[in-house]
């Protein structure tokens, strides 16, 4: 009898452990975010570090983001054309490319590409600083890692992502346009006219809001995982993986939530 009860308790404990672990992790990340923002907004400020991060997150991600956007825009145009031709709806290409790029693919693809590039780099760099005691050293030199390292990254990412999504949206539309004109035989001025008709300000704003949210998660989880690193080189490796995986999940999940909330 007591055995049965013990087994039952074990069973429920095992079920309970998962959500408790999840909530604990969410709590730790939330505290980390709060610390970063509240301390980052108080002096001393590090404008140099902020600009450095803006360049590394934004500027140096442009090639990969541009490439992703142009290929995806073109591929999307081809898919819509092929799919649409089954019921004579080829003319929807510019409209669907515009919706698809601006509302979904632009922000999500930029978010994922930058997450792969930047969240991993942040986790690896800050994680290495943790295991080599550079973070401790910084504190003993009376410099707050939250102000010096983490806040500049977070603020730069929140600002850089919308700018990059704006660029990616444009390049994506351009990719769709090029393929439609060059291969699918669309009339250039008609195509542009339709694109302009379906390109709405609200969609663009939504695209940028998504981008800012994704930028927040990228820097937050990159830095959090780096900061929480334990145990040498293997620990840094784990943190890097965790940073990328958790950022991907949060980007896709928050994209779904925002989309469902806004577009219903």
């Amino acid at each position: 009898m007591t055995r049965l009860i013990a087994a039952l308790f074990g069973f429920f404990a095992a079920i309970g452990r998962v959500p408790i672990g999840l909530f604990a992790a969410i709590g730790r990340v939330a505290i980390f975010a709060w610390r970063t923002i509240s301390r980052g907004l108080a002096p001393p400020y590090y404008p140099g570090r902020f600009l450095e991060q803006l360049a590394s997150i934004g500027w140096f991600s442009l090639p990969v983001v541009g490439m992703t956007a142009i290929f995806t825009g073109a591929a999307l145009a081809q898919q819509v054309y092929t799919g649409g031709s089954r019921f004579n709806a080829q003319s929807t290409v510019p409209a669907i490319v515009t919706f698809g790029m601006v509302r979904e693919l632009g922000p999500v693809l930029v978010g994922l590409m930058v997450a792969g590039r930047v969240a991993s780099a942040m986790a690896a760099e800050i994680g290495t600083m943790r295991v080599t005691e550079q973070l401790d050293a910084m504190e003993t030199l009376r410099t707050d890692p939250f102000r010096y390292l983490i806040a500049p990254r977070l603020f730069a990412a929140v600002l850089a992502l919308p700018a990059m999504v704006l660029i990616a949206d444009s390049i994506g539309l351009f990719g769709g346009y090029m393929l439609s004109i060059g291969k699918l035989g669309f009339n250039p001025s008609n195509y542009l006219h339709t694109t302009r008709q379906f390109l709405e300000m609200d969609d663009v704003v939504m695209s940028l809001v998504k981008a800012a949210v994704f930028g927040f998660f990228i820097a937050l989880l990159g830095c959090y995982n780096g900061y929480a690193t334990q145990g040498g080189a293997a620990g840094v490796g784990r943190s890097t993986t965790d940073a990328v995986v958790s950022t991907f999940i949060l980007i896709l999940l928050s994209d779904l939530l925002i989309t469902v909330m806004v577009f219903t």
Binding site: G48, E133, Q134, M138, T140, R142, Y148
Partner: peptide, 29 residues
Amino acid sequence: FGMLFQGGALFDSLPVWRNVTFGITQGRA
């Protein structure tokens, strides 16, 4: 307090002079 860490814990992204003066400048250039 000042502390000498076991592995040195120098900031590897900064040159020697900025490392040495980090405690004075609090990392500002």
